[in-house]
Amino acid sequence: MPAVSKKGLSMPESPIRKLVPYAEKAYKENKTVFHLNIGQPDIKSPQIAMEAVASHHLEILAYTRSEGSEAYRTKIAAYYKQNNIDVTADEIIVTTGGSEALLFAMGSIADVEDEIIIPEPFYANYNGFATASGVQIVPVISKIEDNFALPPIEEFEKLITSKTKAILICNPGNPTGYLYSKEEIQKLAKIVKEHDLFLVADEVYREFTYDGAKHYSILENFGLEEHAIIIDSVSKRYSMCGARIGCLVSKNKDVMKTALKFAQARLSPPTFAQIASEAALQTPQSYFDDVIVEYKERRDTLVRHLEEIPGVKVGHPKGAFYCIAQLPIKNSDDFAQWLLESFDVNGATIMVAPAAGFYSSPGVGKNQIRIAYVLNSESLIKAVHILKEALKVYKD
């Protein structure tokens, strides 16, 4: 029998999606499953985006330009200017989700066996994108005891070698909800300039910040014009995960010229999704104001109830809609599967994302889970109650 590739065998499973068969089995047993495992917002997509597709009368569903339609990119640039990010349409490539933007970025700046330093825990698919690109992730651990703040800059410098090409951050963070301060971005700016590296920032949760905190983009007056690459997406901003539209943004002409070749190889991003995403840029600020109020209430409810459970330690999110909880167990993979297979409270259970998959350091995060607070507060309270009762009886 022909063998699959070593690269394919080394591709990691998604810690978010690998438990789906167990959830489906729970459904067949007529259990209610509260999904805390995946960042699919329950917020309605902007009506203006949905109507733009419904009312469009295309006679031919044709390719767009490989870098995305000029009209859409021009409007994205205007959006960025409103957020203190001064870029032009030519400094934007529209991609099939933020995922493709990350693949284009890695392919444009790193060769096989080159290294990218990433504070962990990090978005689990970074592991997969790196494997697909032949790139080595070099982790620098941020700790729940420090609320997942940026590790000391000295820890980054210890890891820089001749193969280091970039530092990659997610801001605000998935899976931690941590929001980097201006001072932390300045520290990263200093080190990438000193060592002639790229700073790649996944900024897809830019709008979701709480308690009056401000998001600072790496292209906001940090002197990183030649070093900065932004990864962005409409998925979470407009609750349009299924649109699969993102973008790569950089003022570095060589990066953009190279990334465009990757874009040309896959021809073009989806046409209808660009129409919806272009219309979504007209979403009024009131939409985001309401969403922030809702997510802040959910965050506060979730954290408060988690902290009432004996032995549970919780990170305090400053942005996005995730948090990491450290549980009094040894293996959250086993625990998450057990919840779906063997436990319920009055016919209801929960689905969580084991956090070890958000690290690349072996053995780290085994007693942690990621929770996405994309359910309403009432459902979150019920879900945390199930977690509390489960921990009372679960045996490692």
Rank of each mutant, 00 (worst) to 15 (best):
S5A: 11
K7Y: 11
P12H: 12
P12M: 08
P15V: 12
I16N: 04
V20C: 06
P21D: 05
A23V: 11
K25P: 05
K25R: 12
Y27F: 14
N30Q: 14
T32G: 06
H35A: 00
N37W: 02
G39L: 01
Q40E: 09
P41I: 09
P41Q: 07
K44D: 15
S45H: 05
P46D: 09
M50Q: 01
E59D: 06
E59C: 05
I60W: 09
I60E: 11
T64N: 15
T64M: 11
R65M: 11
R65C: 11
E67P: 04
R73T: 04
K75E: 15
Y79K: 09
Y80A: 02
N84K: 03
I85T: 07
T88K: 01
D90H: 07
I93G: 14
V94K: 02
T95Y: 07
T96G: 08
G107Y: 10
E113K: 13
E115N: 09
E120W: 02
P121H: 09
P121Q: 07
V135E: 06
I137W: 08
V140R: 04
I141A: 13
I141G: 02
S142H: 09
F148L: 10
A149C: 12
I153V: 15
E154V: 02
I160C: 10
I160N: 10
I160W: 07
I167F: 05
L168E: 00
L168S: 05
C170P: 00
P172R: 03
N174G: 06
P175V: 08
T176G: 04
Y178T: 06
Y178A: 07
Y180R: 06
E183I: 03
E183P: 07
Q186R: 08
K187Y: 11
V192K: 00
E194H: 08
L199R: 01
V200H: 01
E207Y: 03
H215K: 11
Y216Q: 03
N221I: 10
S233R: 00
V234Q: 03
V234E: 02
S235G: 15
R237I: 14
S239I: 02
M240Q: 10
C241L: 09
G242Y: 13
A243P: 00
N252E: 14
D254L: 14
K261G: 09
S268C: 15
P270Y: 12
A273C: 12
A273R: 01
A273H: 09
Q274R: 01
Q274L: 08
Q274T: 04
A276Y: 01
Q282I: 07
Y287V: 07
D290I: 04
I292Q: 12
E294K: 08
R299P: 05
D300H: 06
L302P: 03
L302G: 00
I309G: 04
H316T: 07
F321T: 11
Q326W: 08
L327S: 03
I329L: 13
D333Q: 09
D334M: 00
F335E: 00
Q337R: 10
L339V: 07
N346Q: 13
G347Y: 10
T349H: 09
M351D: 00
V352P: 00
P354C: 01
N367G: 10
Q368K: 15
I369T: 06
I369W: 05
I369K: 04
R370Y: 10
S379Y: 03
L380I: 15
L380G: 13
H385V: 12
I386S: 09
Y394K: 04
Y394L: 02
D396F: 04
